[in-house]
Amino acid sequence: MTPLQKDAMKELASIGTGHAASALSGLVGKHVNMAVPEVEQLNLEEVASHFGDPESPVCAILSRCEKMVPSNLVFIMPEEDARELAEEMLGLLNVPLDLANRAEIAESALAEAGNIILGAFMSALGDMLQVNLPLSVPAVAHDMLGAIMDIMIAIFGVSGDTAFLVSTPLTFPENTDRIFSGKVLLVPDPQALEGFFGLLGVA
């Protein structure tokens, strides 16, 4: 990958995550800060530990785009942050604390959050690239970080020993007690990179 291609991918992720951040902000009624996207090319065996303890519990919402630039799009956060996000959403909806199926509602709130955040990301990319990039219905998983990353990494294993992804951290600056640390990951299938470069005019 050339420096120009790397910058183009960064820019793309920056625009996508900007839209994702405002979508998240709208959901919880709070300001959301976005860091500068990081374009990462990692050896397969170091991917999991790069993002933290491979056994740490995380919540990940994954959606897939199969058109033009086949990619996985993931909103990933520590499990406690996912609970916090769900609580914020349920609070705004005035869902009673003692409601019997509250956990179930929290779960669909997370899926919906993922849907909105990832949808905002991908439609911003589509607008910029002037193509339609439909996303699949998102799937939510709560599990170990390493296990969640496996499937994304396996896709790269077919063609090589390195994985490529763009990661952008999101935080709520108003929360002072603890820092919310969600990340939007764009993980293009290996063959999709050329597609991105073509559409970006940096092939």
Partner: peptide, 23 residues
Amino acid sequence: VGMGDLHSARPPEKLYTLGLGSC
């Protein structure tokens, strides 16, 4: 034993791998 790796061990050693999903 990292992703894609292969290692051997003799007693009393242990071999481990953390956070397996589809692997």
